[in-house]
């Protein structure tokens, strides 16, 4: 095939023109020449407002039944740590400071208006009828049983944890949780500017992943590392989850159920221990206190 010089040049110019036009296309995946947007401090009142909105979504408290004092985690019979909490409903006046502290500590995102209309809030700690409800960290956890990938897994410290990079979003755990304490990331909150990284120690969860109360695992790990540097054996002391730290009435007591000198065990002695009826048979580690035993 013979090409004249004129047509060769024409072809060449045409190709270059086409290529440069192709280079001008709009492409989302190409890096944008924009400065990183460091917005001003997010207004905490937005988070507060959403908590108040969510209060109306769940106006009824969970019905409680009396349970024995939480003890050894069935999967770790030799462990001497079973972390848990007791929420004193006699002291709680449902001010909602725990819910806000939880969202700020764990970078829990807000949801957009559409999601809010469907009631798909992400709150790890909800105020159901004024009662703070979060994952109960069951010993015999229904969510851990059905998770296919092992993303929902029991921690040797006796609580229920989540491995976010392992989660593929089958949502079986959420379907199986009678307390509905698990939240699914329906949207990418960071993309919509609804998430804020208050706490650099906690990753933001991507879209399509389940999440729930982690008992502020980042604080627990820091306390453990600190104890280890001093050569001490950490048994769950010297640390508080965000909700417990924020409670002005000290109604949320955190500690180790297996340590008889811990705050938790001492303060729950002689009190009536209750758990939500739906999960009472799964050996919850987060329980409620009410009246005397």
């Amino acid at each position: 095939m013979k090409i004249s010089r004129a047509s060769f040049l024409k072809l060449l110019t045409g190709t270059f023109a086409a290529l440069s036009l192709f280079g001008c296309r709009r492409e989302k995946s190409l890096p944008k020449n924009e400065h990183r947007e460091v917005s001003s401090k997010p207004d905490l009142s937005l988070w507060q407002k959403e908590i108040d909105e969510a209060r109306f979504a769940t106006p009824r408290p969970e019905s409680l039944v009396m349970v024995p004092r939480p003890g050894i985690h069935p999967k770790f019979p030799d462990a001497d740590v079973r972390l848990g909490m007791a929420i004193d409903l006699d002291l709680c006046d449902s001010c909602g400071k725990c819910a806000l502290a939880c969202m700020v500590e764990n970078n829990v995102p807000r949801v957009n208006a559409d999601e809010a209309r469907k009631g798909r809030y992400m709150h790890w700690l909800e105020l159901r009828g004024g009662m703070p409800v979060m994952c109960a960290h069951c010993g015999d956890a229904p969510c851990e049983k059905v998770c296919p990938t092992g993303a929902a897994v029991a921690s040797p410290d006796g609580f229920s944890s989540m491995v976010y990079p392992r989660c593929i979003g089958t949502r079986f755990c959420g379907a199986n949780c009678p307390l509905h304490a698990r939240k699914f990331n329906y949207t990418d909150a960071a993309e919509q500017g609804l998430a804020a990284k208050f706490n650099p120690e906690v990753p933001l969860r991507p879209q399509g992943v389940m999440e729930k109360c982690s008992l502020c695992i980042q604080r627990l790990q820091n306390a453990r590392i600190q104890a280890k540097t001093f050569g001490l054996e950490w048994r769950g002391s010297g640390v508080l989850p965000a909700c417990a730290a924020a409670c002005p009435k000290h109604a949320i007591i955190f500690g180790n159920w297996l340590d008889l000198n811990s705050d938790l065990v001492r303060k729950t002695r002689g009190r009536g221990i209750y758990a939500p009826k739906s999960i009472a048979k799964f050996l919850p580690a987060v329980v409620y206190l009410r009246g005397k035993a």
């Binding site: 460091v38 917005s39 401090k41 700020v104 993309e191 998430a195 990284k197 208050f198 650099p200 933001l204």
Partner: peptide, 13 residues
């Protein structure tokens, strides 16, 4: 994590 994430302070806490 996405770069658009707002890194922020919480003066209240």
């Amino acid at each position: 994590e996405s770069l658009t994430t707002v890194e922020s302070v919480n003066p209240a806490l």
